Amino acid sequence: MLAASVTRFSPDSPADGLEVGDRPEPASRDAWTTVDVRAASLNHHDLWSLRGVGLRAEQLPMILGTDAAGYAPDGSAVVVHAVIGADGHGVGPDEPRTLLSERYDGTLAEQVSVPTHNLVPMPSDLSFEEAACIPTAWLTAYRMLFRSARLTPGQSVLVQGAGGGLATAAVALGAAAGLEVIVTSRSGTKRAAATALGAAHVLESGARLPHRVDAVIESVGAATWSHSVRSVRPGGTVVVAGATSGDPTAAELTRIFFNEISVLGATMGTRDELSDLLAFMVRTDLRPRIDRTYPLSGARDAVTRLAGGEHVGKIVLTP
């Protein structure tokens, strides 16, 4: 089968470590199901894998990808939940939690095998391309907003950065749920996109906010951390799900303890939360913003665009 794999680590130019070619079809395993992939999407997780973060050389080649939608063997349309081992299904209770493409081959292929419990019925209202955008970035944004920060309609949230899959998901989900969403970005194009997604205020990176917010969605790291800590109200929450610009050199601990700010980490969400999110999107007629769609054979071009940071929304691959 055709697949996009990391074959060597390339910290400075991730796409150089990617190879698109023939790989063996998934082997049959008890309590696992092989899905015929109709669409998959990229995440920053794929860039980290290509740079050698989270993988060892002896694991290569490893098929990339955490997100997919496709057909189960019985012909039903399904969305893949990418977290393996969190609930013990298909692997037993002692296996540590991982994402697809960390210990088991991922979704950038014509087929992917996952524990059967990880399959969620795909709503007929969604296309395969739309559904493939949801399991990582959108699910993480959903968890950050409503489980970690526990935001409710009428509250306010700052989303740092406006272009990537996580940020665009947080803006759209927050606006649909009645939150006052404030967005920062260096790019005028991305600020305009955030407005179209429902943001109440769009500002230059680092700009003073109209008021301090109840929570901050932080995935940028060093470039925005100080601004995030200064922008949240006393007793508010900063939820962290990444550090694309690296770890901050100063943690701003004095401001954090003096203002009693909570700092929480978030990664993905549960299978049940994925089901809830899919239902929420159908009921609110909310759809992921897709930046570009590439054939699987064009995975190197897709990864290059993701690494360049000019995308707005999700980048999708179709086998």
Rank of each mutant, 00 (worst) to 15 (best):
H211W: 12
P210A: 06
I182E: 00
E218S: 04
K190N: 05
G308Q: 10
T136G: 03
R283A: 15
P135G: 06
I182C: 03
N259C: 11
V6Q: 01
A169G: 10
V316G: 03
T152C: 02
G269H: 04
P93N: 05
Y142S: 11
A131G: 07
T140R: 11
P61C: 13
I315R: 04
F280A: 15
I261G: 03
R212G: 01
R8P: 01
P135Y: 05
T66V: 14
I290L: 08
V114K: 12
S275Y: 07
A15V: 11
T254R: 15
D94N: 14
R8F: 08
F128N: 07
A86G: 02
P11W: 06
R150L: 07
A77H: 12
A39S: 06
D36H: 15
R283H: 15
D67Q: 05
V6W: 02
E102H: 10
A149K: 11
S10R: 13
I315S: 01
A40F: 04
A132K: 12
T237H: 09
E252D: 14
A4R: 05
G206H: 12
P248T: 04
P135D: 09
P24L: 08
E273T: 04
F128G: 00
R186I: 06
I315F: 07
R97E: 10
A131M: 08
P73S: 06
G164S: 15
R212A: 05
S127F: 12
H311G: 10
A222M: 06
P121T: 13
H81Y: 14
T116W: 03
T284S: 15
P288N: 10
R289E: 12
T66N: 11
A243F: 15
A177T: 00
G308E: 05
P14W: 01
A207P: 05
V202L: 01
L151D: 00
R191T: 02
G235F: 09
V312D: 03
T98D: 10
G75K: 01
V220L: 14
A266E: 09
L100D: 04
A3F: 06
S262P: 02
P96F: 07
A68G: 09
A266Y: 03
T66I: 13
G65Y: 07
P96E: 11
R23D: 02
T267A: 13
V157L: 00
